[in-house]
């Protein structure tokens, strides 16, 4: 199985390491040609504004949007979730707009308020999570299922083959969420 990690900017290496530890081929995605043959793609954390500007200026935004709309399984973490969201409540832009949620950018505040905790995930139990200037999911459409909660709020959601987390599983040693995503990819 070959999984891509969007590599324009951000925590690319960490996701690639997680995938390698699960015995999966992981390729950095920088150009449209890198999308060929992928069974899934991870959009890593980083700065969503920077990532989007790089994506669109390098001609990668459109082919990637088409691939996701065509059913390519995708896992967005933090900034990646913002790129996927249909609406951003406190920012005038919208990026791929494929996941029917409204997110608030930097909802946990500034870096001094960033934290680590465990998240309750359906079927997996407590999963360690790192929240960094994290977004919050404020609204969800009917097709969106909440898989993980922290302090009663949704932090991990799924809509078909689209998975989104407000936190960073790739900064922990726990591989269960990556494994969960690989299972989504196997189903296609």
């Amino acid at each position: 199985m070959k999984i891509g990690v969007l590599a324009v900017q951000g925590a690319v290496r960490e996701h690639i390491l997680c995938l390698h530890r699960l015995g999966v081929e992981a390729v950095p995605v920088l150009r449209p040609a890198d999308l060929a043959g992928l069974q899934g793609i991870i959009l890593p954390g980083g700065e969503s504004t920077a990532q989007w500007r790089l994506l669109s200026r390098a001609g990668l935004a459109e082919p990637l949007a088409e691939a996701i709309k065509g059913g390519l399984p995708v896992f967005g973490t933090c900034a990646g979730l913002i790129l996927l969201a249909k609406r951003i409540t406190n920012w005038p832009e919208r990026y791929f707009g494929v996941l029917d949620v409204a997110v608030e950018r930097n909802a946990t505040g500034r870096q001094v308020d960033s934290f680590e905790a465990t998240v309750a995930v359906d079927g997996l139990g407590e999963v360690p999570a790192v929240f960094i200037r994290a977004p919050a999911i404020r609204e969800m459409g009917p097709g969106v299922e909440v898989l993980g909660r922290y302090a009663g709020e949704p932090v991990l959601v799924r809509q078909g083959a689209i998975l989104g987390a407000t936190f960073h599983p790739e900064l922990t040693e726990d591989l269960r969420l990556h494994e969960f995503f690989l299972n989504l990819c196997r189903k296609g």
Partner: peptide, 13 residues
């Protein structure tokens, strides 16, 4: 981890 993890988010930037 929260501090160094934040720095990881700058990579490539």
């Amino acid at each position: 981890r929260v501090k160094t993890g934040f720095a990881e988010m700058f990579k490539g930037g």
